[in-house]
Every structure is written in C-alpha cells, then in structure tokens.
Design a protein around this nucleic acid. Sequence first.
DNA 1: TTGACATTCAAACGTTCGTTTGATACAGAC
DNA 2: GTCTGTATCAAACGAACGTTTGAATGTCAA
Lengths: 215, 215
Amino acid sequence: MPPDNKNSMTQDRLLKSAEMLFAQKGYDAVSVREITNAAKCNLAAVNYHFGNKKTLYLSVFRERWMPRAQRIRACFEENLAGCGDTSPASVIQSLAEALIKGPLTDKERLCHFQLMIREITNPTEAFEIVTEETMKPSFEGLGQLLQPYLHESIDEERALLNILSIFSMVLYFNFARLPVSKIIGHAYDQPFKDRLVQHIVDFSLSGLPVRENAK
Amino acid sequence: MPPDNKNSMTQDRLLKSAEMLFAQKGYDAVSVREITNAAKCNLAAVNYHFGNKKTLYLSVFRERWMPRAQRIRACFEENLAGCGDTSPASVIQSLAEALIKGPLTDKERLCHFQLMIREITNPTEAFEIVTEETMKPSFEGLGQLLQPYLHESIDEERALLNILSIFSMVLYFNFARLPVSKIIGHAYDQPFKDRLVQHIVDFSLSGLPVRENAK
DNA sequence: TTGACATTCAAACGTTCGTTTGATACAGAC
DNA sequence: GTCTGTATCAAACGAACGTTTGAATGTCAA
C-alpha cells in the first residue's frame, strides 16, 4: 500500500492548481505542463493520478467545486435560521449574504463563480453537476420558500424567473467584477460588498427605487 | 488594383466564420484551420488578410461586434421614441425589447452575447471596446434618463447598481439559455421571449411580486 | 534482505498548433 | 506582350500540445 499522505498530497496540489488555472484561463488555455509546474510535480503526474487532462477537469468539479457549493448552501440555511422567519426579505438577505460575503475567501468565491460561468458557456460533463445537482435543487428549495408569499396569480414559470433574476445578479456581480469596477469606478472592497448585498436585497424586493408619483 | 469584390469576400467570410466559432467555443478552442475550413478558403488566408489569429479575433469585434452593438442601441432609441415619454417603465421596456427581441436574429443575438461573456471572463484588447466604447456610454445614458425619476437619496453608485442589475438579467437570460431551459423545462421560443421581456420589466420596476401584507 | 507495489521522474512519442514560404493565377497599366 | 501588384494555394516550418514509456526511488510485508 502506498503512503496515503504523499499520494493524496500530490493529487491535492494538482486539484488545487488545476482549479485555479482552469478558473482563471479556461480549459483550453491551460496546459498540463502549466498545471504540473504550479503544483510542483512531474508532468506525468496528471496522467498517473487522473488518467488525462479532461478527467482532471471533472475531478476539480467533483472534489472541489461541489463541496464548496454545499458549504454555500449550508451558510444560506444558517443565515435563514438566524432570521427567525422565512419572509422574502429574510430569504433574499440570507441568500445574497451567503453568496457574496458567505463562508468563502474572496479568492475561492471568484474561482467558484468563474468555473460556473465557464461551464455555462462551454458545457462539458461537469455541466450536469452544476445544474442538476446544485442549481436546480437550490432553485426548487427557494421556490418553495417564496411561493406562499407571492401573488396567487404567479404561475410556476414566473416564480422561477424571479429566482433566476436574483441569481443572475449574484452571478453577474461575482464574475463580472472587471467591467463592474470599471463602471462604478472603484474596486470590490468589503464596504462595497456590504452595499452590494443591500442593493440586491432592495432591488429584488422593490425593483428600481422610483419615486411614488413617477411610477 | 485587385477586384475589391473578391478581396473583401474572403475577408468577410473569414470574419463571419471566425465570429461564429469564437462565440461558440472560445478563442483557444478554435483553430485557424477550423476557421478557414468553415470560410472555405486557404489556411494562409488568415495571415494574409489579418496578420495573425489574434488580430482576426480583434477584427471580429471591430468589424462585426461593434456595429451590432450600435444597431441594438439604435433600436432602443427607436423603441423609446415610440413610447412618447422617458418614464422608467418606458426606458426599461424599450431596453429589454431591444436586447431580447430587438433587431437581431436569434443566432446573431446568441453570438453577440456569447462573445461579450467571453470577453468579460477572458479580457483581451477587445475588452476595452466592450466596456469603454459600448457598456459605459450606454449605462451613463441610461443613468441620465432614469436619474430624475429615482429617489433623491439615491447616490450615483446606487443608480449604477440598479442599471447593472437590469443588465445582468438581460445578459444572463441571453447567454445562460442552457441552464435556464433546463430549469424552466422548455426552450427559448417566441412566446417565452415575450414573457421574458415582461418579467424583466416587471421585476425591474417592482422586484418580487410579493403580496402587500407579506413584504 | 528480498520482493511487491505505489509513486516520481526525464525523455520521448505522435499530433496539432500558428505561421511562413515560394509557386501560381489573374487582374489592370503601359 | 510585358510588367506590377493582389490573392490564393499546397507544402513545410518550428513550437507546443497531451500522452506514453521505462527506469529510478521509496515504502512496507514477508
């Protein structure tokens, strides 16, 4: 039997380096040599531990992306439990905080959403993990939470579109930091992220802050 | 002097094929051979007409993406002129229709937003074209249109966040068709796009359709 | 100490990449 | 006809790619 320490150390370093590079540059723009250099191991290690580059990419989603998605979900549920109720305001506040401030470091969060976006624009086998095992269950859960509070006339599609819209904002403000920073004129610091959460909650609950007599 | 017809015909075919392939697969996943095969011309044509692959990619943005962004903008302005006023409802309706139904074919629109997303996640020199020459001016124009109607307490950053939020929805519902289709359970047909525009307008103006006594 | 096994490594594999080359075809100017 | 410049082409270039190989290294059971 191999020393499980050394074995998994190289595997873990590979997964870590691969995840960061895939997130930053995308699958095709990253070479196996680049990954193994970053992980400080031999070129052949990828094929020895994961078979090939594609399986390494899939392993990144299985071993690193999925657990993180679950951590975010757990954080949302903790936030909501702390609210004491399941009103739309509480739900959205808990969701926005879990996704934008949440349990992840800033680097992790950026990495997480970049991988997600790349999988949406270039779907591979990992797309199923992202949609079927993560997004879909989450959205169904949110739908059940919000449904009792929505207008009776709202059908299921409209309810889902509302949740997708909230999600689109969170996703966008996470992965499109560059253009957002360019447009608002400053970086993503902590106070701004606080204001961002507040904005998403406000906008989701009331839409544009229009004066009453101007609607 | 060469026959300007034949000259520009090959160039145009290259730009057309390159745009579609770059949008579908991303810069690194598309080879020059793939592009020249699609354009039915010789491999060396890319280097003869554009110098190299990277310049071809930039030319796609300059020669095809920018004009299309301008067509969308013109459509928005026509829509708004047809409304007779510049109320937030009219502005948002005109914007959502220009972006989601608009002057483009479905294929063009998908291509347009895919290129945009790719440039946001993998910024190159074309990123400046997308942000500085297109997004920023548009958002400033929208800000000036909406400002008079917003609450006096709303500062510039909050006003921009509102516009960015509307934009995030439009962008998301355009480029993330796959997961959206998976979640709502059907394809992007014309009636759905109508409902989508309506939803974006409603959501932007009022947020979640919550019952009054439940807010 | 020996043998079996897991892991690492340098080197090479064949393929595909972006780019270059030199020949060829063909237009209009003189 | 000859010359000039543009456009296309097949063929080849060196570099980088993902993957494979076989030897070397280290660890533990027997």
